[in-house]
């Protein structure tokens, strides 16, 4: 058995956990505002696709990043429009967003790139890896912490900002109030819909970032349905992290580790299919694990 835990694994954990973390933070806002959001998956997929499209059109990775965020936010607004304005069933609308994302990205991929399955062009330059001065020279730590895309560093900053926003900012207070009791919040003059739209927009932006990290950061390519359930794993991270930014960070790290381990074990003695299952199995186990404790309080 080769050593699984080493510096490279941790570095790849950091890369791979970022999409989960960002999508989960996005979902945290909608969840705190009282909207059950299963559309994280679709919003991310839009981000991934239009990130690549942006790079392809302009040659600029940052414009790709901007387009990723913009497209995911537009989709999030569509989701919000149907859920908040028309009071449609959030689960069904969310699933529809996911189906739309899969269909529309594949459809548009054929139109723009003329290919099916996936698009990869080695000439496309994705987001550069940022070398942090001084820290990058520290052995081990430098390898883990330095040399990631800007999205990775942004994600950590966003955790802090999200915490301050939710628990220290008046609008964050409103958001939590709306999620807990929309009627009460409304009776105090808080604009419930406005706050919910805000949560949806934040969610879209973060999912756009998450999607971009998948498609224009690690490698610059788009693969049909490349989010592969990450939106749902992010949903689990929210549950596991009790919709708290710092706890979500921890939960996402756990799932990132599962992804990294899965990647590492590829080509080893264990058949690839079992290795590929790892993140999903880990997610389900974690999900059950989190609920083991509350069970005891409700005796049967």
């Amino acid at each position: 058995m080769p050593a699984i835990f080493d510096v490279a694994l941790l570095a790849s954990t950091i890369r791979l956990f970022t999409p989960i973390l960002l999508a989960a933070l996005g979902g945290m806002f909608t969840s705190r505002a009282g909207i059950f959001n299963v559309a994280l998956e679709g919003m991310m997929l839009f981000g991934s696709f239009f990130g690549v499209v942006g790079v392809f059109w302009t040659g600029s990775a940052y414009i790709g990043l901007a387009l990723a965020v913009l497209s995911a936010t537009i989709v999030a607004l569509i989701f919000g429009f149907f859920v908040i304005q028309f009071k449609g069933d959030a689960t069904i609308i969310g699933l529809a967003i996911n189906i739309l994302a899969l269909g529309l990205t594949t459809y548009t991929m054929r139109l723009i790139f003329g290919v099916t399955g996936g698009y990869y062009d080695p000439n496309l330059q994705g987001l550069p890896n940022i070398t942090i001065p001084i820290i990058s020279d520290i052995p081990l730590l430098g390898q883990v912490v330095s040399g990631h895309s800007i999205i990775v560093y942004a994600a950590f900053v966003i955790v802090g900002l999200a915490y301050i926003f939710l628990f220290r900012h008046p609008v964050g207070l409103h958001l939590r109030a709306v999620g807990e009791n929309p009627q009460a919040a409304g009776s105090l003059g808080i604009h419930v819909k406005r706050v919910q739209y805000l949560s949806v927009i934040l969610c879209g932006m973060l999912c756009g970032l998450a999607g971009a990290q998948l498609s224009i950061s690690i490698v610059t390519q788009f693969v049909e349905g490349m989010t592969a359930g990450r939106g749902f794993i992010a949903l689990v991270a929210i549950m596991f992290g009790q919709a708290h930014p710092v706890k979500i960070l921890g939960a996402s790290l756990l799932f990132g580790l599962a992804y990294a381990a899965s990647l590492r074990l590829q080509g080893g003695a264990i058949p690839t299919q079992f290795v590929a299952m790892l993140p999903y199995v880990a997610t389900i186990l974690v999900l059950i694990g989190t609920r083991l404790r509350p069970r005891q309080s409700s005796t049967t």
Partner: peptide, 29 residues
């Protein structure tokens, strides 16, 4: 899991698709 641990079935059923597909793929490979 939903009945016993209150784990939302919506999420677990979806995640199990990936596991089923990989598992079946392994078997026929």
């Amino acid at each position: 899991w939903q009945v016993r641990f209150k784990v939302p079935l919506l999420v677990t059923t979806l995640l199990l698709n990936y596991i089923a597909n990989y598992f079946a793929s392994y078997l026929v490979n």
